[in-house]
Design a protein around this nucleic acid. Structure first.
Lengths: 114, 114
DNA sequence: TGATTACATAAGCAAATAATTATATACTTA
DNA sequence: TAAGTATATAATTATTTGCTTATGTAATCA
């Protein structure tokens, strides 16, 4: 079996980023749905700047991509990242977080990207 | 395919621990070799208390086990941990660190556990 | 038994992190 | 064009982290 490896230094950086419950949950959420900042604010009950700063860190390492759509900025996992295979093996072992999306829909606070 | 999942909170804790280059390298090293504290001091060129503190954190989450053998304490990945499958998928993607063990052997500072 | 070796733990400190408040910017809509 | 909404960034602060030094303990050895 061919096993791709990731540089130690980079792996530690990525794991440190994922080692925060908010960011880890974000990543699991946006692996299959794009979410905008105000949805995260609703989901995590955190201030908007705090959310933006978490997303900024994920963006700086190239783990997420953003897509502007009218007044919203939608974030999703960048599956074209060279680190996505590594990240995917982690996310695959985490419990599905889709009930958080359903709560937004029941709230009427869900914003559809496209 | 049956996919076991790990609680979000616990996953974040584990990833945070692994998100440190020293601890991550330690884990990769002791997945297949037991190492004692003084070997880590030699490998990482760090103070002994610093090494002990890293190991303590890994121990507190149950990721490593220790085995006392005369004056040395050998640490290795606890493969019976309920979190080992999760950790293994991460370690499997990291580059082999065995050259560090070979350096010890060339140095004459390698200590054999059993 | 006294000295040495291996390790753990405690205390202190500097750097990094994550949150908040305040403010700026860009887009939308009335 | 003015007001409102969504987001980003800067500044500040509290907390956490990782390291160092100092000290304690247990085992080995001369």
């Amino acid at each position: 079996m061919i096993q791709t490896t990731i540089e130690m230094e980079k792996a530690a950086l990525i794991l440190k980023l994922l080692g925060d419950k908010t960011r880890l949950t974000m990543m699991k959420l946006i692996e299959n749905h794009a979410c905008c900042v105000c949805e995260f604010v609703e989901i995590f009950k955190m201030s908007q700047p705090s959310i933006s700063q978490h997303l900024r860190k994920l963006k700086d390492l190239g783990l997420v991509e953003e897509e502007r759509n009218s007044q919203w900025t939608f974030y999703s996992v960048d599956k074209s990242s060279e680190y996505y295979p590594f990240i995917k093996t982690i996310l695959d072992q985490l419990p599905n977080q889709d009930e958080k999306i359903r709560e937004l829909e029941e709230n009427g606070t869900r914003i559809e990207c496209c």
